[in-house]
Amino acid sequence: MRIVLSYPNFQFILYSYIVVTSAFNKAPSYIQALMTVTLTINNLTRELDLDPGTRLIFVLRDEFALNGAKLGCGLEQCGACVVLVDGQPTYSCTKPIGELAGKHIETVEGLVDDDGHLHAIQDAFLELNAAQCGYCTAGLIMRVKALLSDNPKPSRAEICAALDGHLCRCGAHPRIIDAVASAAAKLRVRER
């Protein structure tokens, strides 16, 4: 079907299978290969009927209204979308949900405890104002969580090596590196 919408000084041509107006409020019914996928995100388990090829980031952001995973490149090059899958840092921008059944997905929202207390890593980022725009922050925090559970006392070089899969355009690097060291110290004290 071809619809021509005209509007003051110009014309749009809108090609579509469905008439736009009637699609308003319609339940989504257009995905080809639907499958029921069971996902556990931040300890919450939900069943979803989705194409198993759907990338995790869109499910997190659009189905679960979680903001932590940010779309940066969609190419595994910037780290803005990093979340943990069974504790492993994972680029949610490319991860198909079909591969995630039975696995535990953790986002930055999941770090806040039930009483609303922030995780030591979040606290450290705040205390050191370890950001400028903060677009890279949530992905970094997840990477740091994985780093500190493997290596509770990383050196500066180890911190940098771990964060090299993440880009920050604002140049907040020095304070981010300091925040990781500070979070590590906080966690070691808490563990004692």
Partner: peptide, 8 residues
């Protein structure tokens, strides 16, 4: 299905 193309 369900995708619109907008062209100008």
């Amino acid at each position: 299905p369900g995708v619109e193309i907008v062209r100008d």
